[in-house]
């Protein structure tokens, strides 16, 4: 059993929030930069130029990339040979929430989380959405998503029938992006979850967003390329103002499902795709 201190986890989460709020991962930046070079629509091109300038200013002057500093989502994969030593905290949720509270206060990030149903601001951006899975090994892997709600509000789930063809799935994804239009701040990243149960599909679609920029060579990679091509044929473009680049990447994650169904979920992230992955 490998013992891991709660403070150590808290520091890692705090640092991840800090990193993701002010800068983008190199893969994400590269996709944006490549799009700027290739975009021909004057509005689309101008939007991409401003986005790149925004990224530079955010990094240099330490201003949050976007004013919607989001709701924090954390995916943990906890090694079965690890043991978290809790002293001051009751649970992993408490550890994460403490890191969130500290980060949002100290880093001047916007506190956007409200209670439900009375919608009172919690004033510290906690709680975070925390997911835990068990994996073999003696490490804890974590993935952070800082999710703005311009894009989160465009999430969709559809329970397809077992006989659904691939092109119907693609049509559904394209419709999701069309319906979202300029609202999720295109060019977007698309996460698709296929299979499992309804909630598993949505969960997978979020996890798929963490694979942005990673090159895959498989049958699913071909499917992803088809999705990108079809979505970009809509011409919605950067900022929704027209152009070739409506989405910069699409990733699919699958899970076996029931003989009677086929859940498909689509999660969209804005161009400011704030994610961070680490190992503890």
């Amino acid at each position: 059993m490998r013992k891991i201190g709660e403070d150590f986890i808290m520091d890692k989460i705090y640092n991840a929030i800090e990193k993701a709020s002010f800068s983008l991962e190199p893969e994400v930046k590269k996709l944006i930069q490549d799009a700027k070079i290739k975009e021909e629509n004057p509005y689309g091109k101008k939007t991409l130029e401003v986005i790149i300038e925004n990224i530079k200013i955010a990094e240099r002057k330490r201003i949050p990339l976007c004013q919607d500093t989001g709701m924090v989502v954390l995916f943990f994969e906890i090694g079965s040979k690890t043991m978290i030593e809790f002293k001051n905290f009751q649970s992993l949720q408490d550890v994460v929430d403490c890191a969130v509270k500290e980060a949002y206060q100290k880093l001047y990030l916007r506190k956007s989380v409200v209670s439900v149903p009375d919608r009172k601001n919690t004033l510290d951006n906690a709680p975070a959405v925390v997911w835990c899975e068990s994996i073999p090994g003696d490490k804890i892997k974590f993935s952070l998503l800082i999710k703005g709600f311009g894009s989160e509000n465009t999430t969709q789930l559809k329970m397809f029938l077992p006989g659904t063809e691939q092109n119907e799935i693609i049509e559904f994804i394209v419709e999701c992006v069309k319906k979202a239009g300029p609202n999720p701040c295109p060019p977007v990243f698309i996460g698709i979850g296929m299979g499992g149960t309804a909630e598993k599909a949505v969960y997978l679609s979020k996890k798929a967003l963490l694979e942005v920029g990673i090159k895959k060579f498989s049958e699913i990679a071909e499917f992803e390329q088809k999705i990108i091509k079809k979505v970009n044929e809509t011409g919605i473009g950067p900022g929704g103002l027209g152009g070739r680049f409506t989405c910069l990447d699409a990733k699919v994650k699958t899970f076996p499902t029931h003989i009677a169904g086929f859940p498909v979920a689509v999660s969209i992230s804005c161009w400011a795709h704030r994610m961070y992955q680490g190992t503890i």
């Binding site: 939007t47 401003v50 986005i51 300038e53 925004n54 990224i55 200013i57 955010a58 002057k61 201003i63 949050p64 990339l65 976007c66 004013q67 919607d68 916007r110 506190k111 956007s112 601001n121 004033l123 703005g148 311009g150 300029p182 701040c185 900022g239 804005c270 161009w271 400011a272």
Partner: peptide, 26 residues
């Protein structure tokens, strides 16, 4: 204006003050 470009757009702001509903925070 440019969605998600809050850092860029802040550069054009010369003065800013809250004039109402300060209890609403952001």
């Amino acid at each position: 204006t440019y969605g998600g470009c809050g850092a860029y757009l802040s550069q054009f702001v010369k003065e800013c003050e809250i004039i109402a509903f300060s209890e609403l925070g952001p």
